[in-house]
Amino acid sequence: MTDNHESEEHASDTSIENKKRRRFLTGITAGFGAIGGGFAVTPFVLSMSPSERAKNAGAPVEYDYSRIQEGQMIKVEWRGKPVVLLKRSADMIAGLEKIESNLADPDSLVSLQPSYAQNQARADSNKPNLLVMLGVCTHLGCSPVEKLALGPDPEMGEDSQGGFFCPCHGSKFDLSGRVYKNVPATSNMEIPPYKYEGDLIKIGEDEGRLA
């Protein structure tokens, strides 16, 4: 009997002890289960990242720019995105100066471009009138419509000197792809790396040149 009595007392002691142990073991098990769950989810999450095939599709493209007439714009595809090639006339270049006070980032300080295109024309200084630019609005990635005529335009405004108008959200850019003030986009359109090889322009590769 005394044995029994003693063991009962023990039982209440050990049951508290047991509860603590059980809680600890439950916690440890749940914790390791969660870590295991995290590992199990990882391959599924990573399977949604760009595949090797998608990563390899970024080769540079070439175009014979001598075929472009003055004032003419064409688009070529590079990495699935439209690249604008625009040979600007002297009037178009002259217009860049006139609307500079309307621009948000006229000196391209917060915008993306190679160093050789960080100027008013946003182009290689050897061929300043040829604009090579990703035709992708910096707001939400639409392709802005070209407005090549100088002068009043219903969407570009009264004092327009030509430019690009994004039909999605009304962002406006000048003929250098520089963004206007007070529109949804806040930086100039991106200039991709490029270089000239004779009559060809190679978009997507500049061999790290700075000028």
Partner: peptide, 29 residues
């Protein structure tokens, strides 16, 4: 282009935005 606009919305998220949009698209476009 509708998908292009809406997925690009995630680009404004600080730090992870561009990677997140690539992950959603599974491609660069």
């Amino acid at each position: 282009w509708g998908a292009q606009v809406i997925i690009s919305l995630f680009e404004v998220i600080p730090f992870v935005g561009p990677e997140l949009t690539e992950w959603i698209r599974g491609d660069f476009v």
